[in-house]
Write a protein that binds this DNA or RNA. Structure first.
Lengths: 356, 356
DNA sequence: ATGAAAGCGCTAACAT
DNA sequence: ATGTTAGCGCTTTCAT
């Protein structure tokens, strides 16, 4: 409203209201409402008359008014770190698709892993009166979540990760510890002993779990762990590929011990790592095997195809959405923790260790 | 509302309203409104009192009520084909970021290139009372758009593409014809003559323009075009990499003439193409150069690095958002067509043609 | 500078 | 089965 002085003001088109429909159909407004929402029986003839008028007028209920009255906006919030990361975009796509089918609209919130942003979005979404929200993040402020959970109309579902399972917010994820254990054992079975581990920050529970899985695999096979091969990022950030490249580059440049395999905690990290490895003159997988995590689409198309852990991303999205809709509809959700199956996908980026 | 029979009904927390604030501050509701929105002068003392109460009560204005009254929801719609495609997700990220800064929330709509879905989303967004929307699509129903433009409160901005420039809807894009001409000439200068062209459907104007650029490059350099090397997809679809792989695979299997270079209309297509080329036993770029389009992040990390046309994706998003906000604020937008600069990025997937 | 009052378009409780 | 009525929480005249 800063400038009203643009002469070409848009002609204010007034869309038809429920009153218009009621009048033209010769019934009361509440009858129209009942006809539309099936909230009370309406005779067949009246119904027909009403829907004819609706068709003629191209009447569309005003969601704002509806929401104000009924406390239901058919809006849900989606808080994710980075929509430009295929891991999140694929989950998001699943969520959006399901929600759209169920008549909800999805408000997208991109945090760039910033805790302050998360808080701001949380506030914003409440103010938008979303019926619920799906939260994918590592660094949640649990107090804040609890407060929201209690003080607003908003239902919450976590996807992929949560820092604690001690509340009753549903979470859809996989068994990260098991997954990484599978991967590590797979490499060990290929004869690898010096296996580097490049991880995003273990401030996130999923990543703590994975590290645990890595270690457990060593323990169970009786191979000793070399801590100098474990590299943990300290800060969450968006440019995963670049970070994978940098970490690996630095590591290879200074480590006295060159591993025969590198495990990373995401496909993007792995893509960066492979580039760094090659630049140092090593071949993948002949000199060094590399593994990713997630199984994003590109993982199977890059060269060499990336050995990785497949997370059912789309399904995770769909399920999260489904659970949230149940919650919104007031249906009880028995299973608070939904743990989906992962799968080790062996491609060309890993091979049996060569004679040393 | 299907089942009310879950006993564990949530305790209905009632957030404070503007009336609560007014009462506690000992002023009229309208004064609170004026204080918050700066819509009329309010004395300093009263203002302080009001904001103190707001802080205490943790009062947040209800957007629904606000929107119902003022016809402003601070919601905008984003209609895109595929959030899981880095091209769109990067633009989307730019849009979301800018909009968030400006106090808007973004409603995400993913069409999967389906025209019917686009229509549904358009309706839905109007019903949600978005203040405006950004539309990225090839197959828009122009009548529908015109209708919306006229009959709703909704402002529209196109990003990347539009089938016609004959209306006054702003569009943010690059010069696709020029871009593809640049790329083609670049290959010609490297000595290539038999350059295949793999394109997504030319039902989209941007892709018609690019094809035109390809042809013009040949014309201007006096090299004859071989139509059997031009392959146009007939249907828009999401799985670009897979399609790139299939098209290239089929083409190489049956074409009597094997080109020394392949131009594709997107990086994803190129990634698929490279895989197919290798499977047929050719090397990239030694036997066959390959080019992409867009310059998504992975383009520089795959092996070989992909020669491509850089589109300023993030900027396109930001600018689209900016224009839309101007429109919403009633500010005149002089420049309806914003054509941004592209850039040819030469990487390792192309090289000088070898002696034949 | 502040207050009173109307009403945005709808749902829901109640009455008929 | 249908109508009447009272708000939901806010912005926006219009008075004062």
């Amino acid at each position: 409203m800063k400038r009203i002085n643009n002469k070409k003001a848009r002609k204010r088109y007034k869309p038809p209201t429920m009153d218009d429909v009621a009048e033209l159909a010769g019934v009361a407004r509440s009858t129209v409402s009942n006809a539309i929402n099936d909230t009370a029986p309406v005779s067949k003839e009246v119904k027909e008359r009403i829907f004819k008028v609706i068709e003629e007028l191209q009447y569309k209920p005003n969601n704002l008014a509806r929401g104000l009255r009924s406390n239901r906006t058919q809006l849900i919030g989606l808080i994710i770190p980075d929509i430009n990361n295929p891991f999140y975009s694929e989950i998001s796509k699943g969520i959006e698709k399901y929600m759209n089918q169920k008549g909800f609209s999805v408000v997208l919130c991109n945090t760039d892993y910033d805790l302050a942003q998360e808080k701001k979005y949380l506030d914003k979404l409440i103010q938008v009166n979303v019926d619920g929200l799906i939260f994918i993040t590592g660094e949640q402020d649990l107090n804040l979540i609890a407060e929201i959970h209690e003080k607003s109309n908003t239902r919450i579902v976590f996807t992929d990760r949560s820092n604690s399972f001690n509340n009753d917010i549903p979470i859809i994820t996989i068994d990260h510890k098991k997954a990484m254990k599978d991967m590590t054992k797979y490499l060990i079975e290929l004869g690898h002993k010096n296996i580097a581990y490049i991880s995003e920050p273990t401030s996130m529970k999923t990543l703590r779990d994975r590290l645990e899985g890595y270690k457990e695999a060593f323990r169970e096979t009786g191979i000793s762990i070399n801590n100098s091969l474990i590299l943990i990022e300290s800060v969450l950030q968006t440019n995963k590929i670049k970070r994978g490249y940098e970490i690996t580059s630095n590591f290879l440049a200074q480590s006295p011990l060159i591993p025969t395999a590198i495990i990373t905690t995401s496909d993007l990290l792995a893509i960066g790592a492979i580039k760094a490895i090659r630049e140092k003159g090593y071949r993948v997988p002949d000199d060094m095997s590399v593994t990713g995590f997630d199984d994003i689409e590109t993982a199977s198309y890059i060269c060499p195809g990336l050995t990785t852990i497949k997370q059912p991303l789309s399904k995770m999205g769909t399920l999260s959405a489904k659970v949230l809709v149940e919650l919104i509809n007031g249906n009880p959700v028995e299973e608070k923790q939904i743990i989906l199956e992962h799968q080790l996908i062996a491609r060309e980026s890993t091979c049996r260790v060569k004679q040393k």
